[in-house]
Design a protein around this nucleic acid. Sequence first.
DNA 1: GAGCACTGC
Length: 681
Amino acid sequence: MPRDPDPPPAKRFKPGSPFFRLDKKKPGMLLPRAGHAAVGVDTQRKQLPIYQSRTQLINQIRQLHNAVFIGETGSGKTTQIPQYLYEAGIGRQGIIGITQPRRVAAISLAARVAEEKKVQLGKLVGYTVRFEDVTSSETKLKFMTDGMLLREAIGDPLLLRYTVVILDEAHERTVHTDVLFGVVKAAQRKRTEQNKIPLKVVVMSATMDVDLFSQYFNKSPVLYLEGRQHPIQIYYTKQLQSDYLQAALVSIFQIHQEAPASHDILVFMTGQEEIEVLARTCRDISKHLPESCGPMTVVPLYASLPPAQQLRVFQPAPKGSRKVVLSTNIAETSITISGIKYVIDTGMVKAKCYNPDSGLEVLAVQRVSKAQAWQRSGRAGREDAGSCYRLYTEEEFDNLANMTVPEIQRCNLASVILQLLALGVPDVLNFDFMSKPSPESLRTAVEQLCILGAVDRKDDQVSLTPLGKKMACFPLEPRFSKTLLISPDFSCAEEVLTIISLLSVDSVLYNPPARRDDVLAVRKKFISSEGDHMTLLHIYRAFKKVSGNKDWCRENFVNSRNMGLVLEVRAQLRDICIKMNMKLESSLSDLTNVRRCLAHGLFMNAAELQPDGSYVALDTHQHVAIHPSSILFQAKPACVLFNELLHTSRCYMRDLCLVDADWLQEAAPEYFRRKLRATKS
DNA sequence: GAGCACTGC
């Protein structure tokens, strides 16, 4: 099988200014051509390049316990390999599970494979994602989110229902995939030891950099899959660009003046504000260009955009007009836009960094990795040859990190540790991670679980308490599952269910800046002096009273999509509570108990007013401030809980709840005694 | 008196 993509073609595009230089050394990244709709699915399957290697592939996989595949996204590997295995009778005693980092991918892949096998979705071919299980006892090819397989593993750590697990999109290195690496490896070893049916593990990645995968899975062979792909010409800037936004603007109009109008442009940027500003500038400039230039349709794209506006990226621009999509990294993986001929890569991304000592997560603009830069350029060649303009020099590219730091090395690990313990991993601190998180990060996580009463520590051994075991059953952050589990003691489980559901999805509050005064006026009727949590609870109750009426949502600036999610999350959590025989009561109008309960679960996120009017977080002793969006912004209460700290111009607490300092002491006397000692020394 | 990339159970 070929190891390298085809070399790029002759230079097809001559930039009008000396701004860019062509990369002659590095091959372009290549991507697949879409299947031809007029041809039947069987013919389409046979036309995929992977079909040529079918027999060879099957013979190889049959003999292997582990294999690593490299092939571009959509090269057919994800839809074909599970079918090849099934058709060859490999793993027929059980299920072939294929994991995906995203829900939509799991669903659409299952639908595609069911179509190819000419079966009804949910029979032979099915999928499982949160809130949706379209499988049956007949299901042999099961597409699922990686988080879902991880959940399943808690009830079945050896994954005995599965004979093959295919971990797809492994290069993305999500926390879930990374934990799964260790889980499937351990399951594989134990099944061999116990003489059970062996488990085959297949890792699929889009990047060539797969040594780590191969090493980790017992030096498994790496198989290269040829894709039917289009060449992409890469350009770099000749000099360093001090202002990537300015450089993006120049590049957009450079292309706009020279390329045919049907060639669309995709620009990768860092965030909403930046995108909206550049969109306005582009629209302004394009109005004042000579007529020979033709019009421009500028479309912003980011996750918090209302769904209707997101759909605009799929609409073709009016005839003669060029579409310019300004996007965050949502267009790197989650959303695929057809017709893109040019990609402009600013080389920057907004990403979360985690400081394990302070426990603080900071969202910061950073450089992309090489892998990410290739992913971005690949978006230019979905249907035909394309070009990618990198707004940095070739030298800067060479100095980029090869891979993005795996998420597991930059997040709070409390949930991961709890889940591993629930899986029965004996020595969590020495779990066989493919990329080990820092010891401080592991220690902080165990410490947090200990304070919450989820784990016991003896010497270096960490074990789950009965409470911790229950906490692991909820798809929630540990602090939230703890709060929910103690809510029956305060006779307010129904309210806590609502509040925790509201806190675990994106905000249900819609705040269009242009209508600020209207928003404030309308929101007055829900305000609770007890804080943001109780205000949210009021909004939820009002929403339920009108049965989720869409007009009501619009009038009250409530995001109905997110509110719908709240209902789903709440129903799922409530089911788990019922299975646990928890007493579900409502505290009705008196919300003091609810706040008292929150204090007992979320005491680690508390802050106290200082004599000078500022606040200090009790856990880390750092100075914090109330975010101006909070209901309590002007109230200056003596003691508050907060849902999260947001580090921007200052360290802000968001989503606050008024509490009594005594409640916190009651909730965790030992913890606060220690904190006090730490302050004095 | 601020302004938050993207997933997922």
